[in-house]
Design a protein around this nucleic acid. Structure first.
Lengths: 135, 135
DNA sequence: CTTGACCTTCCCACTGCTGGAAGGTTTAGG
DNA sequence: CCTAAACCTTCCAGCAGTGGGAAGGTCAAG
C-alpha cells in the first residue's frame, strides 16, 4: 500500500485542480513534491491529507495566507488552541463585514428595483438614482 | 461657468482616485478625455456626472462590465426600463448567491469556534475538522 | 529661482487561480 | 510497430480593479 500518486490522482482525490496544486507548490504553500525518474511529481497519502486540509480551509473562506498559518498550527504539536480560535474569530469578523457590505448593496438595489416599472418606457428610478437625479 | 477641470479635481469631486479614472479611460469605460495644451486631461461637468454615476454603480456592486451596460442604457433615450430592471434583478440574484455562500462559511466556522476551548492546550476542533478527523 | 503640488506615461504587484502553447511520457488499441 | 489519447512538464499571459512608485514635464506661490 501507500503507492505514490501522480498529480492527476491527488487532484481528483483532493478536489483541487492539478494546476492549483502546482500553483500552491510554486508559492510555497506546500513543500515541493518529490519526483519520479521521468520528472513527474510524486505524492503520498500525507500530501493528500494536506491538500484536502487546504481545500477545506479555502472552502471556509480563509485566504491563502491564513491557510499558511493554519497549516503551521496544524503541524505544531505545541500550539495553543487559543491561537487557532483567534485566527478563526478574526476571519468570522471579516466575513461578517463583507456580508454586511453585500447586504447593504442588496437592500439599496432592491429598493430601487421595487420602484422601477420595468416596462417599455425609458423612465427608470434605478438610472435616476445612479445619475444623482434621484427621486 | 462650466470651467474645465483637471483630473485631480474630478477625482476629488467624484470620489474616484485619479488612477482609477485613467484606468477607466484605458479600458474604454469612459471616452478619452480632451487634452489641454500641456497634455493634461480636461474634464467637463458632464464627465463629472458620468464618473459619479460609475462610482455609485460600483458602490452597488456592479462589475465594470455591468456598469458599461448601465452607461449605455443611461445614454439611450429609447431604452426600456424593463432592460435596466432585469439587469438590476440579475445583480441582486448574484449578490444573494454570494451572501448565502459567505453566510454558510460563517455558520460552519462559528460552529467550530464554539466548540474550541481556546486555551493553552493544542486540542482544537477547528483543526480537527479541517484535517478530516472531525468530531 | 526654487519648492512643492500637480500632471504625464510606464510598468510591476496584488489575489487566486485558469488557460494555453510547446514539448516529453506512457499506455491502449489496431 | 505505430499511432493516438491521455498523461505529465515548464513557461507565459491574463482576469478584476486597482495601488504603488519611478521618471519626467508643468505650474503657481513665495
Amino acid at each position: 500500500m501507500s503507492e505514490s500518486l501522480n498529480i492527476g490522482s491527488v487532484a481528483e482525490a483532493s478536489g483541487l485542480p492539478a494546476k492549483t496544486i502546482r500553483y500552491y507548490e510554486s508559492i510555497g504553500l506546500i513543500r515541493p513534491a518529490g519526483r519520479r525518474a521521468n520528472g513527474y511529481r510524486r505524492y503520498s497519502e500525507t500530501d493528500m491529507r494536506t491538500l484536502a486540509f487546504i481545500k477545506r480551509a479555502r472552502g471556509l473562506g480563509f485566504s491563502v495566507e491564513e491557510v499558511r498559518a493554519l497549516l503551521d498550527l496544524w503541524a505544531d504539536r505545541s500550539r495553543r488552541s487559543a491561537t487557532v480560535r483567534s485566527l478563526a474569530t478574526k476571519h468570522i469578523d471579516a466575513l461578517d463585514c463583507r456580508i454586511a457590505e453585500l447586504q447593504s448593496m442588496r437592500e439599496a438595489l432592491a429598493h430601487l428595483v421595487k420602484r422601477c416599472h420595468g416596462d417599455t418606457r425609458p423612465e427608470c428610478p434605478i438610472l435616476s438614482d445612479l445619475d444623482g437625479s434621484g427621486r
